[in-house]
Write a protein that binds this DNA or RNA. Structure first.
Length: 418
DNA sequence: TCTGGGGTCCTAGGACCC
DNA sequence: TCTGGGGTCCTAGGACCC
């Protein structure tokens, strides 16, 4: 049996931990620049608001309906996620962190009461972190996902649901729309509906030959998983193969200098992540794009990648490469709305070339370690920074509804008056 | 006025090779 | 006028995920 723990309305739940009066109230967490709704409480969903709704379109109606808004506070969510994962880790033999709000749970020791275990784990996470979580156990990951959906949807499960018999499997699959199955996206759903496949049960009941004629290998895996045959093996190394840092800007940016500043921020963020996973990259790609929603301005998207002579994890080397790429794609006179960098060809050990100055590489490596150490120990993460970063993205981003850094900044710690 | 960010995997087709 | 066959590797783009 494999478990899946999924935090309910995760970003909203994080905010509610520190604003308990918002329980049972409509709450929406917004994306960067207060652009879109990305997380909604059940009450906000019930009012008809959806994930992806642009804030400017729903603002008036939602305010009138009493919705509380938050700008995304990702440092808070990341820290709360770590707390949830720590609790889950202590309760299972091993866990696979699948996303900021989900983890698969492996239980090696024998138990015949998975439902009780799931409910206990959910209650423990709730008590230790304040975050409500739904846990499903089943023979495959795809079925565990379905089980956790039931645990989330029906309060009667008390946060824990198990699919472990043919009868329970049949019932769960019949009640699950095929579009809700893990791995069935918008495009696939459309095709399935043409064939009259509407529920997970319809899909699971098809003969394998039929499935193979409709789907590629990933679809066949999903079908097997629905039939109780484990076929999706998670990639258990936690290191990423690419690291992207990008942002949309609140208003269009026209000059190279402004983009340079933004790229200094991107390089800082991406290189820090790279160093955190103790790796080095050989390739840096830069991209810029104009506003795709404006039809009275030219549409331009371009990207360019640069290969480093020797692999690096240094912010300044990565920035240098990103700016080289940016120079090739920058066109004056255009208003840029979004930009970013992706670093790739990531490897564990540094890869010098024959003329590399090894001493210099080691010196740079030490320098970056020192910068990270200083920044990690300070309240400001940019105590030491690349000068061209200036005040970062401050002037070109917007956050009007921020909560505080309750768990990671001493000045922001919550006060209790008794 | 205002429309997110960060990933993975698979596949078709081109480049290249013998 | 005639213009092979088969293999591998790489990459861009599509589809999916949260």
């Amino acid at each position: 049996m494999i478990g899946l723990a999924d935090c309910n309305n995760f970003f909203v739940s994080c905010e509610r931990v520190f604003r308990p009066e918002l329980a049972h109230k409509p709450v929406i967490v917004l994306s960067n620049n207060d652009g879109c709704a990305v997380a909604l409480s059940n009450e906000a969903k019930a009012l008809g608001f959806k994930r992806g709704d642009p804030f400017f379109k729903i603002k008036d109606r939602a305010s009138a309906a009493g919705v509380t808004f938050f700008s995304g506070n990702h440092r808070l969510y990341g820290d709360m996620s770590a707390r949830v994962m720590t609790t889950l880790r202590a309760l299972s033999d091993d866990i696979e962190v699948y996303s900021i709000d989900e983890a698969f749970l492996n239980i090696h020791s024998e138990t015949d009461d998975y439902a009780g275990l799931a409910r206990y784990m959910a209650a423990k996470v709730r008590r230790d972190t304040g975050i409500p979580v739904s846990i499903g156990f089943a023979p495959t990951r795809t079925l565990a996902k379905i089980a956790s959906r039931f645990a989330k949807k029906y309060p009667g499960y008390a946060g824990g649901c198990v699919i472990d018999t043919p009868e329970k499997t049949a019932k769960a699959l019949t009640l699950t729309p095929v579009g809700d199955v893990w791995g069935i996206g918008r495009r696939l759903l459309k095709r399935l509906q043409i064939y009259g496949i509407n529920t997970a049960m319809d899909l699971a009941s098809l003969p394998q030959e039929r499935i193979e004629s409709i789907f590629n290998i990933t679809g066949v895996r999903t079908w097997k998983e629905l039939n109780g045959i484990p076929s999706i093996v998670p990639d258990n190394d936690s290191e990423h193969k690419t690291i992207t840092s990008s942002r949309s800007f609140a208003k269009e940016v026209y000059t190279f200098e402004e983009l340079h500043k933004a790229f200094a921020v991107f390089a800082t963020i991406a290189a820090k992540k790279l160093r955190e996973q103790k790796e080095h990259a050989l390739e840096v790609e830069a991209f810029i794009a104009t506003n795709r929603f404006r039809d009275n301005a030219p549409l331009y998207f371009n990207s360019c990648s640069v290969t480093l002579a020797e692999s690096s994890d240094s912010t300044s080397e990565i920035l240098k490469a990103a700016l080289k790429a940016l120079k090739r794609i920058f066109r004056p006179g255009l208003g840029y709305k979004k930009a970013g960098i992706t670093i790739s060809r990531i490897a564990h050990s540094p890869q010098p070339h024959i003329f590399s100055d090894i001493a210099k590489m080691e010196k740079m490596s030490k320098l970056m370690l020192t910068v990270d150490a200083i920044n990690n120990s300070q309240h400001s993460s940019y105590a030491v920074k690349i000068a061209s970063m200036g005040n970062g993205l401050e002037e070109i981003s917007r956050k009007d509804h921020s909560s505080r850094l309750f768990t990671t900044r001493l000045e922001d710690i919550i006060e209790v008056h008794a």
